[in-house]
Design a protein around this nucleic acid. Structure first.
Length: 150
DNA sequence: GCCAACGTTGGC
DNA sequence: GCCAACGTTGGC
């Protein structure tokens, strides 16, 4: 069992949207490091913190579960999509999606809270320059966050 | 809107 | 392969 943190902008797709739809193809990831995690490491049954970014109160807002692993991100072939990539072909897809299922909503665990917690100093999310939209969370961090803040 | 910290592109 | 210019992320 592995743990992850996926960022999303709530204006685009929020935890409430996921709760309403129950499952969602996680598309639009256009960063190679994040893509590599999706392609090579995200496994069936892994648990994911859903994180709201670029919004009034950034933070962890819920939990989801991986119910389908690496497949070509459909949006890269859709020329109507803002994620369309003309250089990607079905034979050699460049971008990868997984499907997430809603598990639960959490009372927001604010970025400022996580940042000020000494126990979480080494968490990737709070590192300077951390920008990855798909990032691993180590088991100790996951359990500590659940026990302390949910 | 600002800007630090990256990531990508493309000429050489 | 180097690196300047440009683009993006995302907190504040």
């Amino acid at each position: 069992m592995q743990y992850w943190l996926f960022k999303t902008e709530p204006d685009e797709f929020s935890i409430d949207d996921l709760q309403r739809k129950q499952e969602e193809i996680w598309d639009g990831i256009r960063n190679y490091q994040a893509r590599n995690f999706l392609r090579d490491q995200v496994a069936l049954g892994d648990l994911v913190f859903i994180y709201h970014s670029s919004c009034k109160e950034p933070g962890i807002v819920g939990i989801a579960k991986v119910i389908k692993t690496a497949f070509p991100d459909p949006s890269q072939f859709n020329d109507q999509s803002k994620y369309f990539d003309a250089k990607s072909t079905p034979d050699n897809p460049r971008w990868i999606s997984v499907t997430l299922e809603f598990v639960e909503k959490l009372p927001i665990i604010a970025l400022s809270t996580l940042k000020s917690d000494k126990q979480l100093e080494s968490m990737y999310l709070v590192q300077k320059g951390s920008r990855l939209s798909i990032q691993p969370v180590i088991e100790d961090e996951w359990k500590y966050i659940i026990e302390t803040y949910s």
